[in-house]
Nucleic acid binder design. Structure first.
Lengths: 250, 250
DNA sequence: CCTTCGTACTCTGCATGCAGAATACTGCAT
DNA sequence: ATGCAGTATTCTGCATGCAGAGTACGAAGG
């Protein structure tokens, strides 16, 4: 039977609000919209060629992601301090290392074999021009497979959510082949642990992987801050309280 | 200096969309809106006395929480299977046990003393009529303090997010004084571990606590399903794919 | 010169209108 | 009776209008 989508479900709806969300997310994480910048629904709508409605929704979603802080008549891009980046990666570390641990006992051999052959293919062609692009694809796929193999759908979607949030930082450092190579080798270590069905080893390997990545990212951020060319900055004033949709629930 | 809000920030904005979100969340989790029910923006708007706009936003947020699945022209309350409840609590367990572990070394003595005196006060008045209500308040507060003391703002907000999602289940079983008593005793164990500044013990105590709670909840759910009076049910047909805002991001 | 009060403007939140897409129903043919 | 096709209906997504709240700026007084 033909299965068009990954999970056999219908295609993911793509509304204008979704597109705007992704566009703004991309712009914020990449630094095209600077930290602390104020977002104006009207000008964004004009800029993007849509009405205020989808922009409004997208901003609300970004606020739920805590990338934007909403005060009364203002939507500002939150200033991401090094501390917040660390916190972000700490939670990601928690989620992904747990997924790896769970996956070690649950992942099916077919997935393992697929990952292994993909990895070998990648290892054989390290000098190809398109290696970096394929290495990034493998990276994403690898984490997806592990998250899926955790057997916990919630955990999987949380991991995917967090990957979105750290995507920009991955790109900051991911462009360098040196980092991609290190990352690839760490993936191999995780894969080996999974093949040995060793939960503890898988967990440790994933922990090492993410800890090294965050170190690289933080170093890069520090470097950028030093050169005053950063999309990250220290908070100019006292932080406002994040708007939590659930904040007033008893 | 007078500090009106918990974190010194401005009051949390409460828009109509927020209110509708909370109302629908409450209705879904409590079972007033049954699993599998279809949500119609127009009738909900009429029901709540608002326009479609805030209802539309609230539904989008609930979909992001994966409590509602959005297909093309339909918004249905997701059917929560026992598996999904288990997954939910597994993630919560992961988050909260990590928070407890981190809190053990970071929580300040003032918070510890406050918790201890609150606990003693509660222990002394176990026969009071309002004890259950105050026990629930203490429960919420306790988890809040631990999450805050983790020192990771992200982790804290994720924990609060997940508490919202399991709130209904807490209420299912929380009304019974027996469970509240057990829960309270488990909190005491966590508190003791925190006082001893023992991360491992704090983590274990939190793990035990949440594992016992999920057991009670699952037993209750099973009981309700058996009596055909459940807000939970098995999926009537194949599950649709959840709409992920981030689903189409490369 | 600084502070304070008042006014005008800006921006968001909500309501509503409209169009397109998907579904459901009905009738017809097999 | 069942399957298919065409039509009508329903529902959502987006655009836009409007009103209220907050801010910013300016003027006047200390």
């Amino acid at each position: 039977m033909l299965q068009l989508t990954e999970n056999g479900g219908p295609l993911t709806r793509q509304t204008l609000a979704d597109t705007v969300y992704e566009t703004l997310l991309e712009a914020i994480l990449s630094g095209k919209i600077a930290s602390g910048a104020e977002l104006n629904e009207v000008v964004l709508a004009r800029e993007l060629g849509v009405s205020r409605t989808p922009v409004h929704e997208a901003i609300a979603w970004l606020a739920a992601d805590e990338l934007i802080e909403l005060s009364v008549h203002r939507a500002r891009v939150k200033t991401m301090t090094a501390q917040e980046v660390t916190d972000l990666y700490d939670v990601r570390l928690l989620l992904e290392s747990n997924a790896a641990e769970r996956a070690a006992t649950r992942i099916d051999t077919a997935s393992l074999q697929q990952l292994r052959s993909d990895a070998e293919e990648l290892a054989k062609t390290k000098d190809a021009a398109d290696w970096p692009a394929r290495a990034i694809t493998f990276d994403l796929h690898f984490h997806d497979v592990v998250a899926e193999a955790s057997g916990n759908a919630r955990l999987r979607s949380e991991i995917q959510r967090y990957r979105i949030l750290v995507r920009a930082f991955c790109r900051i450092t991911g462009a360098q082949v040196k980092n991609l190579l290190h990352s690839f080798q760490e993936h191999l270590a995780i894969l080996t642990a999974l093949e040995q069905r060793d939960p503890k080893a898988a967990r440790d390997a994933m922990t090492v992987h993410i800890e090294r990545r965050v170190k690289v990212v933080l170093a890069e951020i520090y470097h950028r801050e030093a050169s005053h060319n950063s999309c990250l900055s220290v908070p100019p004033t006292a932080q406002r309280a994040p708007r939590l949709r659930s904040g007033t629930v008893k």
